[in-house]
Design a protein around this nucleic acid. Structure first.
Length: 274
DNA sequence: TTAATTTGACCAAC
DNA sequence: GTTGGTCAAATTAA
């Protein structure tokens, strides 16, 4: 297999993923201490960077439909100038409805009490869906054009009382769109506050619901922010359980298998758990 | 003024 | 012919 940017891609992939996990462990420890939000912000950025790198490496492997070309990856690393963006936008004009219907492969779903996942989304459409009580809303990453991020999601209310959203994600974020909480962490991991307001999907529905749910909204938002970093097990999609991740969980996800892989390459030093 | 949302149109897939 | 995903002009909010 060819080297990726001068490094074995398998090795680099594992390295990035394990580094991401290591930063997460450090962050978890940090959040137990008060007044450490600045360091926490920095760690979140590192985690984000590691996963973004990992995605980039994955894209460099194979020729699946989900892979970006090398030139596209380079575009992500080196955002377009304004004139190039305008040119690209112009090329996209008069192409309404020109699309390939999505396949469900390469997507993942989540059900939660909020739409908030800590990322910046822009709504671009809403549709009444056949045999569905509520419309489906379509979101793309806010940085679709400035960072060529192709992540999209579809959000649909599946029930009320309590309100539940069914969200389907397509594609990974290749941008830095995650909204870092600004000095609003509480001492407990599961109470980090996110100053990100949801866009107004189904405003009336939400306003109605918010009357009775505003008190617990922040903790729900917190757990959802972290779900993006968690494995896609069913339990991780349960917002209540997700809010209760703890140090033991992190020790579990940084498994011995990771260590074996790393030992194979002899590149990463041992990780100490807090 | 800029950015985000709404909404009707478009069209490939079914 | 119907449905669902996307675009982009118009509208609204910050």
């Amino acid at each position: 297999m060819e080297d990726f940017l001068g490094e074995n891609p398998h090795k680099k992939l594992i390295k990035e993923l394990v580094e991401g996990k290591r930063f997460a462990v450090q962050l978890q420890s940090l959040l137990k201490q008060p007044n450490e939000s600045v360091l926490a912000d920095e760690l979140i950025r590192k985690i984000w960077g590691s996963f973004t790198q990992a995605i980039t490496v994955l894209n460099s492997l194979g020729n699946s439909d989900n892979s970006l070309t090398q030139s596209q990856i380079e575009e992500v690393d080196q955002p377009n100038s304004g004139s190039e963006l305008k040119k690209k936008k112009k090329e996209k004009q008069d192409r309404r409805g020109c699309y390939k219907r999505r396949k469900t492969s390469g997507s993942w779903m989540r059900e939660s009490e909020t739409m908030n996942d800590g990322c910046a989304w822009r709504k671009y459409g809403q549709k009444k869906i056949l045999n569905s009580k509520y419309p489906r809303c379509y979101y793309r990453c806010t940085h679709k054009y400035d960072q060529e991020c192709r992540a999209t999601k579809q959000v649909q209310i599946i029930q009320k009382n309590p309100i539940m959203y069914h969200t389907t994600y397509f594609g990974n974020h290749t941008c830095n769109s995650i909204k870092i909480p600004k000095h609003t962490y509480n001492s407990q991991f599961n109470h980090a506050m996110v100053n990100h307001s949801d866009s107004t999907v189904l405003k009336e529905e939400e306003e109605e619901e918010s009357k009775g749910q505003s008190d617990n909204a922040s903790s729900v938002v917190d757990s959802n922010l972290w779900q993006d970093f968690m494995p896609s097990s069913p339990s991780a999609h349960d917002s209540t359980l997700a809010a209760n991740y703890n140090a033991a969980y992190y020790e579990e996800i940084i498994s011995s298998r990771d260590m074996e892989d790393l030992a194979k390459f002899g590149e990463i030093e041992a990780i100490e758990f807090c």
